[in-house]
Each structure stands twice: as structure tokens, then as C-alpha cells.
């Protein structure tokens, strides 16, 4: 590679600029969720004669979701740490563990949603349920997206090993995954805990 190549930026900065942009993207996503939370808060007792959160929410279910996601956030961090050891094998292993936990989380969530729908509590039942399904579902959609991304990244890591590009991608993905857990903390608190109070 030529050494004296000049870009607008120093070349090492290339990847760190992408991480900086990703932080801003996350802030943008925080505001997106804030708006969904605001809607939920405003509509949360508009039951319209439909079921209330106390009747609907299943404590063991959402507690399990919470701990699974928290653990996967932890394991995604451990995956990123493998970058420093330059161990592709370890990295992929931890990513796979994270992905499996993510899938388990999604499984619980889908199970929860289907149960509700079978009990007749659908998105069309009341404003409260519209807000509930949309807020929690948007988070679930983010998790799903993250899983697809993880799969792509695992393939790239297997093919190319740890390079500046792939390690930037790992860092960004783990940031994203931590962020999803951070959002979940508030869903856990504002939706579920306050709901069953």
C-alpha cells in the first residue's frame, strides 16, 4: 500500500469517523424511541373498555426477557473485547452466543404477543394496546435487524478475519446491541413495572 496517500482525513481516522457518526445515529434513534414512549405515556390508560396491563402482563415472561437481553448485551461486549486479543474464533463464538440469546428474547416476545392476541387483546382493541404493541414491537424490530446484521458480520469475519474495517463493524454492532438493552430498561420500567403496579 502506498504510504504517502493523502485524503481529506488521515487514513486511520476513516473508521473512527464512522463510529462517531454511529453515535449520532444512536442519538437519533433515542429520540425515535422517546417519541414512542411519549405516545405510550399519554395513551397508557386509554383502555376503551379493553384489558388493562395488570390483566395482560405476565411477570415471569417479561422478567425472563429482561435478563436474557441484559446477558446478551454483556456477551456482545465480551465479543468486542476479543478484538484486542485478535482472536477471530473467540469473537465469532461470542457473537453466536449473543445471537442465540437475541433469538431467545425474540421468541419470548413473539410468544407474549401471540398469547395476548389469542386472548383478544390486539392492536385494534384500544389506544393503550396500539401504543404497547407499537413501542415494544419497534424494539423487537430493532433486535431482529440487529440479528440480521450480526449474521452478515459473522460471515465477513469468517472470510476476512480481523481487519480495521471488520473491527470497526464489530464495535459499531456492539454499541447498537448495548443501546437496545438500554432502551429495554425503560420498556421494562415504564411499560411493564408501572403496568403491573
Amino acid at each position: 500500500m502506498a504510504h504517502a496517500v493523502e485524503t481529506g482525513v488521515k487514513h486511520e481516522d476513516h473508521e473512527s469517523i464512522k463510529i462517531a457518526g454511529f453515535w449520532i445515529f444512536l442519538v437519533q434513534d433515542v429520540l425515535l424511541f422517546a417519541t414512542l414512549f411519549a405516545t405510550y405515556v399519554v395513551l397508557r390508560n386509554h383502555y376503551a373498555g379493553g384489558p388493562t396491563p395488570k390483566e395482560l402482563f405476565d411477570v415471569p415472561g417479561f422478567v425472563a426477557e429482561t435478563f436474557i437481553l441484559l446477558t446478551s448485551s454483556f456477551t456482545s461486549g465480551l465479543a468486542a473485547l476479543q478484538l484486542n486479543k485478535k482472536s477471530v474464533g473467540g469473537l465469532i463464538t461470542w457473537l453466536v452466543i449473543t445471537g442465540v440469546l437475541g433469538l431467545a428474547f425474540l421468541g419470548f416476545e413473539i410468544n407474549e404477543f401471540t398469547n395476548m392476541v389469542q386472548e383478544g387483546a390486539t392492536i385494534s382493541t384500544s389506544a393503550f394496546l396500539s401504543a404497547f404493541f407499537t413501542l415494544v414491537g419497534t424494539h423487537g424490530a430493532h433486535v431482529t435487524l440487529g440479528l440480521g446484521w450480526m449474521l452478515g458480520l459473522i460471515i465477513q469475519l469468517a472470510r476476512r478475519g480481523i481487519t480495521p474495517v471488520t473491527s470497526r463493524k464489530v464495535s459499531v454492532l456492539s454499541l447498537y446491541w448495548h443501546f437496545l438493552d438500554a432502551v429495554w430498561i425503560f420498556i421494562f420500567t415504564v411499560v411493564y413495572l408501572i403496568g403491573v403496579m
Binding site: 441484559l70 446477558t71 454483556f74 461486549g77 473485547l81 478484538l83 430498561i185 420500567t189
Partner: peptide
């Protein structure tokens, strides 16, 4: 490109444990 991923196993473990505690208390 010796850019390191920040943090260490210790910091992740501390964060994990504190998060667990802060989940259990409100629950």
C-alpha cells in the same frame, strides 16, 4: 491501526453485575 476496542473484561463484569442489581431492586 492499533486502535483498541475500549474497556476490559473487568469493566464489563462490573457493569453486568450492577445492571442485574438495578433490575432486581425495582422488580
Amino acid at each position: 491501526h492499533s486502535e483498541k476496542h475500549p474497556g476490559s473484561t473487568v469493566s464489563y463484569v462490573i457493569g453486568f453485575l450492577l445492571s442485574i442489581v438495578l433490575t432486581i431492586i425495582p422488580l
